[in-house]
Design a protein around this nucleic acid. Structure first.
Length: 599
RNA sequence: GGCCUCGUAGUACAAUGGAUAGUACAAGAGUUUCCGAAGCUCCAAAUCCAGGUUCGAUUCCUGGCGAGGCCA
């Protein structure tokens, strides 16, 4: 159990013993890390007890501090500063902790238990390539999957592909009209980009057609409907729905190009999926559930035959589930798909990584499933994230302001190369190793950049300033790791030595402040790891890793390891940096970021 | 119009109701015969406005102002 939790329990017990009359609840106890300007490792806030115990903070603090000092093995001293009880943990505690955990490759992870969680992410449309906004989704989903697994859950990574609909027909019709049979092979263009080009082409032609019609005196609304390319696309959609052989063949061919393109991108990004769902398989689902809901009286029918649910009692409004002609809407198929997923895997939880513009939709979906009495409802969690915006505002494909994902990755890798070469750090690597290193640095920077922000908040990305490789970045953390590896290489200590190597270690000297700071941080890692999963927030792990790397850098600057004052200090510091490197590798690994041993 | 988010240094981000509001970039000053300077050290700079709850509010509540999103 980590120290902060132990202290909290000890405090609760102490207060109950000292003040048996008063009611003390765990929620009243706040334990923080002590601010650097005060003596101590952890701080217990005394104010919340003042009223309940009718004691002055100082008196109370003294009683509590003395009790903890006497009755636990944890503390060596305490200080009271204006309502805060600062406690200092015994050096022997830290030494024991370090000796037990420094080379534990699973430190902080939880044992596997039978809770099945699906994480759905990426979920692209098959009419255009991935853009920068998708990357936030993909990295979030991938990191959350790893985080949930590290916390013991059985994770299924799912990708629901939006492979049908009018937008897909748009690129198909434009390809049919203008491509002259061009294929990825004949043009050398990546499949998703090729199809995307014809989606753009569609919009160009469409716009021109509307303009021409308006010029002939038609009003704009009518022109939008009358444009021939749009009529063709709608006609194609009808044919697709009726199973027209030719259209289906074209659809399959173009989608297969897109999938091949996505596969290349996913592989480059280092993400994968356990299960693919296709909207062409699921878009008719949900209708029967709606029919049943109608029978149960949960849903109602309007005069035109359309089916609705009334959520006004829940502060929402009425929501359409089936149109008068019996066709379904997005909500209908989402109901069906939620049930399908649940039945496929007997899910305990189903996480949807979807942008916050769908907040209302997801809220309604969960409500409806609850009202319908579907058991999948309870486990649904919308991991809502803010959109990535440019300084000028939202990315808009129509205005050509989208940043392409593949381009962005390539740019980051070349930035990594450029900076490595400028720093003259290419010696001792083969060409192949360098290539891999640039990928590690470039992709790491990109992932970290998108994950370091609280998912709920929208973020602004300025492509002109590109992404820095200094400061609050993956590069900074990777560099700290590489330095540690370099020291260990020189000392001929493996990254994960067997425990017996330091068996003879015995602490006889005082632990220095910089060593302590590092120990406190290392010890709190399990708490961070757990919280990041509970709060569905990988940025907590990014913040933590960066702080840990910072602490290492300061420590490294103050104290020599190979030239330590004596053998004991050297062993202590070696264990410290072995564990630091271990946690950095593990934490960043969960984010999909590799830590190089040299850079 | 209704509902939901969000307003923190020049910029981008932190802060379970707790101490003097942290970090990075940019700006300024240092730092290399010594384990990797992609580093370290110092310096300056911010909670949109007005009320309220509290021993204590960036955080909770109300009302403005501003930005974004969703629903018709």
């Amino acid at each position: 159990m980590i120290l902060a939790v132990q202290l909290k329990l000890a405090t609760e017990n102490a207060l109950k013993y000292l003040f048996p009359e008063a009611t003390i609840t765990a929620s009243m106890i706040t334990i923080n890390q002590t601010k650097p300007e005060f003596t101590g490792d952890y701080t217990i806030v005394l104010f919340p007890f003042v009223k309940a115990l009718r004691q002055k903070p100082d008196v109370l603090g003294n009683q509590l501090g003395s009790y903890l000092l006497e009755h636990t093995e944890l503390l060596s001293r305490f200080d009271i500063v204006s309502g805060f009880l600062n406690v200092t943990v015994r050096d022997s505690y830290w030494a024991n902790f370090l000796l037990n955990e420094f080379n534990n490759p699973n430190y902080g992870e939880k044992a596997s238990h039978d809770v099945r969680v699906m994480v759905e992410y990426s979920s692209p449309n098959t009419n255009k390539p991935l853009h920068f906004g998708h990357l936030r989704n993909i990295f979030l989903g991938s990191a959350m999957s790893s985080l949930l697994r590290a916390n013991g859950n059985q994770v299924i990574k799912a990708n629901l592909i939006n492979d049908r609909g009018i937008h897909i027909c748009k690129s198909m019709i434009a390809w049919q009209r203008y491509a002259n049979g061009a294929t990825p092979e004949s043009t050398g263009i990546k499949g998703d980009h090729l199809v995307g080009d014809y989606y753009v082409k569609f919009n160009d032609v469409y716009k021109a057609e509307i303009a021409a019609l308006v010029a002939r005196g038609m009003d704009e609304k009518t022109a939008e409907k009358e444009a021939s390319i749009m009529k063709d696309a709608q006609d194609m959609l009808r044919k697709w729905e009726s199973g027209d052989q030719e259209v289906r063949k074209l659809w399959q061919m173009m989608n297969s190009w897109v999938y091949a393109g996505f596969d290349v991108s996913y592989k480059k990004l280092g993400v994968d999926f356990d299960k693919y769902y296709y909207e062409s398989d699921t878009y008719l689902l949900g209708k029967n559930v709606v029919e049943e809901g109608l029978k149960k009286g949960v849903l109602f029918k309007k005069e035109d035959g359309s089916v609705w649910i009334d959520l006004t009692a829940d502060g929402l409004d009425q929501k359409l589930l089936l149109r008068g002609d019996g066709t379904s809407v997005y909500m209908t198929q989402d109901i069906g798909t939620a049930i399908l997923k649940y039945n496929d895997y007997k899910l305990n939880k189903s996480v949807y990584v979807i942008a916050d513009e769908q907040n209302y939709h997801m809220q309604v979906l969960k409500h409806i499933l609850t009202k319908l009495g579907e058991p999948c409802a309870e486990g649904i969690y919308h991991l809502s994230y803010g959109m990535v915006e440019l300084p000028s505002g939202r990315m808009k494909s129509r205005e050509g302001t989208v940043v392409d994902a593949d381009d962005m990755v390539a740019e980051m890798i070349s930035l990594a190369q450029q900076q490595t070469e400028e720093a003259g750090k290419t010696e001792g690597f083969t060409t192949e190793e360098l290539h891999k290193l640039y990928e590690t640095i470039g992709l790491g920077a990109l992932k970290f950049y998108l994950l370091r922000v609280d998912p709920k908040k929208k973020m602004i990305f300025d492509p002109k300033e590109s992404i820095d490789l200094h400061g609050f970045t993956a590069t900074f953390i990777q560099y700290a790791h590489a330095r540690i590896c370099s020291i260990l290489r020189k000392e001929q200590v493996p990254l994960m030595p067997s425990h017996t190597k330091f068996n003879a270690f015995k602490l006889t000297q005082e632990i220095a402040p910089a060593e302590r700071d590092l120990l406190v941080a290392l010890e709190s890692y399990p708490y961070i790891l757990e919280n990041a999963a509970i709060e569905y927030n990988p940025s907590l792990l990014c913040n933590y890793s960066f702080m840990l790397a910072q602490l290492f850098n300061s420590f490294y600057d103050k104290h020599s390891i190979s030239q330590a004052e004596n053998e004991e200090k050297k062993e202590l510091r070696l264990m410290l940096i072995i564990m630091t490197a271990q946690i950095l590798r593990q934490a960043m690994g969960l984010m999909g970021i590799r830590m190089p041993e040299k850079m």
